[in-house]
Design a protein around this nucleic acid. Sequence first.
DNA 1: TTTTCATATTGACCTAAATCGATCTTTGCG
DNA 2: CGCAAAGATCGATTTAGGTCAATATGAAAA
Lengths: 99, 99
Amino acid sequence: MPLREKQLVAALKAVADPARLKILRLLKQKGQCSIGKGVGMCACDVQDHVTLSQPTISHHMAILRKAGLVHAEKHGLWMWYRRNEKSLKELAQAVSADL
Amino acid sequence: MPLREKQLVAALKAVADPARLKILRLLKQKGQCSIGKGVGMCACDVQDHVTLSQPTISHHMAILRKAGLVHAEKHGLWMWYRRNEKSLKELAQAVSADL
DNA sequence: TTTTCATATTGACCTAAATCGATCTTTGCG
DNA sequence: CGCAAAGATCGATTTAGGTCAATATGAAAA
Protein backbone atom coordinates (compact mmCIF):
# COMPACT_ATOMS: atom_id res chain seq x y z
CA MET A 1 0.00 0.00 0.00
CA PRO A 2 1.60 3.30 -1.05
CA LEU A 3 1.98 6.09 1.46
CA ARG A 4 -0.79 8.21 -0.04
CA GLU A 5 -3.13 5.27 0.37
CA LYS A 6 -2.10 4.80 4.01
CA GLN A 7 -2.80 8.48 4.64
CA LEU A 8 -6.19 8.24 3.00
CA VAL A 9 -7.14 5.21 5.08
CA ALA A 10 -5.88 6.92 8.25
CA ALA A 11 -7.98 9.99 7.48
CA LEU A 12 -11.05 7.88 6.73
CA LYS A 13 -10.58 5.88 9.93
CA ALA A 14 -10.16 9.10 11.87
CA VAL A 15 -13.42 10.40 10.52
CA ALA A 16 -15.35 7.14 10.86
CA ASP A 17 -16.00 7.57 14.57
CA PRO A 18 -18.93 9.44 16.13
CA ALA A 19 -16.84 11.13 18.82
CA ARG A 20 -14.25 12.44 16.37
CA LEU A 21 -16.92 13.48 13.91
CA LYS A 22 -18.51 15.50 16.68
CA ILE A 23 -15.18 17.05 17.65
CA LEU A 24 -14.43 18.05 14.07
CA ARG A 25 -17.78 19.80 13.91
CA LEU A 26 -17.29 21.43 17.31
CA LEU A 27 -14.08 22.93 16.00
CA LYS A 28 -16.10 24.83 13.41
CA GLN A 29 -17.59 27.01 16.15
CA LYS A 30 -16.14 30.45 16.75
CA GLY A 31 -15.45 32.14 20.04
CA GLN A 32 -15.21 28.96 22.09
CA CYS A 33 -11.48 28.97 22.69
CA SER A 34 -10.47 29.53 26.31
CA ILE A 35 -7.23 31.25 25.34
CA GLY A 36 -9.01 33.79 23.20
CA LYS A 37 -8.30 32.49 19.73
CA GLY A 38 -11.13 33.29 17.37
CA VAL A 39 -11.23 29.78 15.97
CA GLY A 40 -10.40 26.38 17.31
CA MET A 41 -10.48 25.16 20.87
CA CYS A 42 -8.26 23.88 23.61
CA ALA A 43 -8.70 20.33 24.81
CA CYS A 44 -10.57 21.53 27.89
CA ASP A 45 -13.02 23.43 25.67
CA VAL A 46 -13.70 20.25 23.76
CA GLN A 47 -14.25 18.45 27.03
CA ASP A 48 -16.96 20.98 27.93
CA HIS A 49 -18.93 19.83 24.89
CA VAL A 50 -18.58 16.05 24.96
CA THR A 51 -19.14 13.51 27.70
CA LEU A 52 -15.80 11.81 27.53
CA SER A 53 -12.91 11.63 29.95
CA GLN A 54 -9.88 13.84 29.52
CA PRO A 55 -7.58 10.96 28.44
CA THR A 56 -10.11 9.81 25.86
CA ILE A 57 -10.32 13.28 24.37
CA SER A 58 -6.55 13.51 24.29
CA HIS A 59 -6.51 10.17 22.49
CA HIS A 60 -9.03 11.32 19.87
CA MET A 61 -7.18 14.59 19.31
CA ALA A 62 -3.97 12.64 18.72
CA ILE A 63 -5.68 10.50 16.09
CA LEU A 64 -7.09 13.56 14.33
CA ARG A 65 -3.70 15.24 14.50
CA LYS A 66 -1.77 12.22 13.18
CA ALA A 67 -4.28 11.94 10.34
CA GLY A 68 -3.47 15.57 9.53
CA LEU A 69 -7.04 16.72 9.98
CA VAL A 70 -6.32 19.18 12.80
CA HIS A 71 -3.44 21.45 13.72
CA ALA A 72 -2.15 21.46 17.29
CA GLU A 73 -0.12 24.26 18.87
CA LYS A 74 1.00 24.45 22.43
CA HIS A 75 0.33 27.78 24.12
CA GLY A 76 1.55 27.73 27.68
CA LEU A 77 -0.47 25.17 29.52
CA TRP A 78 -2.99 24.85 26.74
CA MET A 79 -3.01 22.96 23.50
CA TRP A 80 -4.76 24.90 20.79
CA TYR A 81 -6.48 22.67 18.26
CA ARG A 82 -7.99 23.87 15.04
CA ARG A 83 -9.27 22.26 11.85
CA ASN A 84 -6.87 21.79 8.98
CA GLU A 85 -9.24 22.92 6.28
CA LYS A 86 -6.72 22.16 3.57
CA SER A 87 -6.41 18.47 4.41
CA LEU A 88 -10.14 18.24 5.07
CA LYS A 89 -10.72 19.54 1.60
CA GLU A 90 -8.20 17.09 0.21
CA LEU A 91 -10.03 14.29 1.97
CA ALA A 92 -13.33 15.39 0.44
CA GLN A 93 -11.62 15.53 -2.93
CA ALA A 94 -10.22 12.02 -2.50
CA VAL A 95 -13.64 10.67 -1.54
CA SER A 96 -15.15 12.34 -4.60
CA ALA A 97 -12.61 11.20 -7.11
CA ASP A 98 -10.55 8.35 -5.72
CA LEU A 99 -13.08 6.04 -4.19
CA MET B 1 -27.23 9.75 17.26
CA PRO B 2 -29.83 10.31 14.56
CA LEU B 3 -30.30 7.74 11.84
CA ARG B 4 -28.64 9.86 9.17
CA GLU B 5 -25.58 10.12 11.35
CA LYS B 6 -25.50 6.36 11.89
CA GLN B 7 -25.67 5.86 8.14
CA LEU B 8 -22.85 8.31 7.58
CA VAL B 9 -20.64 6.60 10.15
CA ALA B 10 -21.47 3.19 8.66
CA ALA B 11 -20.52 4.42 5.19
CA LEU B 12 -17.29 5.97 6.47
CA LYS B 13 -16.38 2.80 8.37
CA ALA B 14 -17.14 0.76 5.26
CA VAL B 15 -14.79 2.88 3.24
CA ALA B 16 -12.06 3.13 5.88
CA ASP B 17 -10.64 -0.29 5.15
CA PRO B 18 -7.99 -1.11 2.54
CA ALA B 19 -9.70 -4.27 1.29
CA ARG B 20 -13.06 -2.59 0.79
CA LEU B 21 -11.45 0.45 -0.77
CA LYS B 22 -9.77 -1.85 -3.25
CA ILE B 23 -13.03 -3.67 -3.95
CA LEU B 24 -14.90 -0.41 -4.56
CA ARG B 25 -12.25 0.56 -7.08
CA LEU B 26 -12.26 -2.87 -8.70
CA LEU B 27 -15.97 -2.45 -9.27
CA LYS B 28 -15.22 0.54 -11.51
CA GLN B 29 -13.69 -1.75 -14.10
CA LYS B 30 -15.75 -2.76 -17.10
CA GLY B 31 -16.00 -6.16 -18.74
CA GLN B 32 -14.90 -8.15 -15.70
CA CYS B 33 -18.22 -9.69 -14.82
CA SER B 34 -18.39 -13.45 -15.31
CA ILE B 35 -22.10 -13.36 -16.12
CA GLY B 36 -21.62 -10.87 -18.90
CA LYS B 37 -22.85 -7.68 -17.28
CA GLY B 38 -20.99 -4.68 -18.62
CA VAL B 39 -20.37 -3.26 -15.20
CA GLY B 40 -19.94 -4.74 -11.77
CA MET B 41 -18.67 -8.14 -10.78
CA CYS B 42 -19.73 -11.34 -9.14
CA ALA B 43 -18.11 -12.34 -5.87
CA CYS B 44 -15.90 -14.84 -7.67
CA ASP B 45 -14.65 -12.10 -9.99
CA VAL B 46 -13.69 -10.02 -6.98
CA GLN B 47 -11.90 -13.03 -5.55
CA ASP B 48 -9.78 -13.22 -8.71
CA HIS B 49 -8.42 -9.76 -7.92
CA VAL B 50 -7.78 -9.84 -4.20
CA THR B 51 -5.90 -12.31 -2.01
CA LEU B 52 -8.65 -12.99 0.49
CA SER B 53 -10.69 -16.07 1.24
CA GLN B 54 -14.21 -16.47 -0.11
CA PRO B 55 -15.86 -15.98 3.33
CA THR B 56 -13.87 -12.81 3.92
CA ILE B 57 -14.93 -11.37 0.58
CA SER B 58 -18.52 -12.27 1.29
CA HIS B 59 -18.16 -10.47 4.62
CA HIS B 60 -16.76 -7.31 3.00
CA MET B 61 -19.46 -7.30 0.34
CA ALA B 62 -22.12 -7.53 3.06
CA ILE B 63 -20.64 -4.50 4.82
CA LEU B 64 -20.55 -2.49 1.61
CA ARG B 65 -24.10 -3.56 0.82
CA LYS B 66 -25.44 -2.72 4.28
CA ALA B 67 -23.77 0.66 4.07
CA GLY B 68 -25.64 1.18 0.81
CA LEU B 69 -22.49 1.65 -1.22
CA VAL B 70 -23.08 -1.31 -3.55
CA HIS B 71 -26.10 -2.95 -5.09
CA ALA B 72 -26.41 -6.74 -4.96
CA GLU B 73 -28.61 -8.81 -7.25
CA LYS B 74 -28.80 -12.56 -7.35
CA HIS B 75 -28.61 -14.04 -10.84
CA GLY B 76 -28.84 -17.80 -10.67
CA LEU B 77 -25.84 -19.05 -8.79
CA TRP B 78 -24.12 -15.70 -8.95
CA MET B 79 -24.43 -12.54 -6.95
CA TRP B 80 -23.96 -9.51 -9.11
CA TYR B 81 -22.43 -6.58 -7.26
CA ARG B 82 -22.14 -3.09 -8.62
CA ARG B 83 -21.35 0.32 -7.23
CA ASN B 84 -24.20 2.49 -6.02
CA GLU B 85 -22.97 5.69 -7.57
CA LYS B 86 -25.81 7.67 -6.06
CA SER B 87 -24.94 6.84 -2.47
CA LEU B 88 -21.23 7.16 -3.20
CA LYS B 89 -21.92 10.66 -4.44
CA GLU B 90 -24.00 11.38 -1.37
CA LEU B 91 -21.12 10.21 0.78
CA ALA B 92 -18.73 12.51 -1.03
CA GLN B 93 -21.21 15.33 -0.57
CA ALA B 94 -21.49 14.62 3.16
CA VAL B 95 -17.73 14.62 3.55
CA SER B 96 -17.52 17.92 1.69
CA ALA B 97 -20.24 19.71 3.58
CA ASP B 98 -21.06 17.89 6.78
CA LEU B 99 -17.71 17.12 8.30
C1' DT C 1 10.48 26.17 45.15
C1' DT C 2 6.10 24.42 46.01
C1' DT C 3 1.82 24.09 44.10
C1' DT C 4 -1.63 24.02 40.71
C1' DC C 5 -3.44 23.50 36.28
C1' DA C 6 -3.86 21.58 31.29
C1' DT C 7 -2.65 17.94 28.81
C1' DA C 8 -0.24 13.53 27.65
C1' DT C 9 0.91 8.82 28.61
C1' DT C 10 0.36 4.28 30.65
C1' DG C 11 -2.02 0.15 31.74
C1' DA C 12 -5.96 -2.42 31.85
C1' DC C 13 -10.39 -3.75 30.21
C1' DC C 14 -13.77 -4.65 26.93
C1' DT C 15 -15.95 -4.59 22.52
C1' DA C 16 -15.63 -4.47 17.61
C1' DA C 17 -13.76 -6.12 13.57
C1' DA C 18 -10.83 -8.88 10.19
C1' DT C 19 -9.75 -13.35 8.83
C1' DC C 20 -10.16 -18.24 7.76
C1' DG C 21 -11.71 -23.29 7.74
C1' DA C 22 -15.73 -25.81 7.86
C1' DT C 23 -20.33 -26.16 6.85
C1' DC C 24 -24.83 -24.80 5.11
C1' DT C 25 -27.97 -23.07 1.41
C1' DT C 26 -29.44 -22.35 -2.98
C1' DT C 27 -29.47 -23.13 -7.75
C1' DG C 28 -28.57 -25.32 -12.07
C1' DC C 29 -27.48 -29.58 -14.46
C1' DG C 30 -27.07 -34.47 -15.71
C1' DC D 1 -32.78 -37.58 -7.67
C1' DG D 2 -27.78 -36.76 -6.93
C1' DC D 3 -24.04 -33.81 -7.75
C1' DA D 4 -21.43 -29.62 -8.42
C1' DA D 5 -20.79 -24.69 -8.16
C1' DA D 6 -21.43 -19.86 -6.01
C1' DG D 7 -22.06 -17.64 -2.19
C1' DA D 8 -23.57 -17.08 2.74
C1' DT D 9 -23.21 -18.29 7.54
C1' DC D 10 -20.99 -20.21 11.68
C1' DG D 11 -17.35 -20.71 15.06
C1' DA D 12 -12.91 -19.68 16.47
C1' DT D 13 -8.97 -16.86 16.60
C1' DT D 14 -6.42 -12.74 16.50
C1' DT D 15 -5.83 -7.94 16.25
C1' DA D 16 -7.49 -3.19 16.48
C1' DG D 17 -9.73 0.31 18.88
C1' DG D 18 -12.51 3.05 22.44
C1' DT D 19 -12.68 4.03 27.21
C1' DC D 20 -11.24 5.29 31.85
C1' DA D 21 -8.48 5.59 36.35
C1' DA D 22 -4.06 6.50 37.70
C1' DT D 23 0.08 8.64 36.89
C1' DA D 24 3.48 11.48 34.49
C1' DT D 25 4.89 15.83 32.21
C1' DG D 26 5.46 20.48 31.67
C1' DA D 27 4.38 25.20 32.40
C1' DA D 28 2.62 29.07 34.96
C1' DA D 29 1.55 31.01 39.49
C1' DA D 30 2.04 31.76 44.33
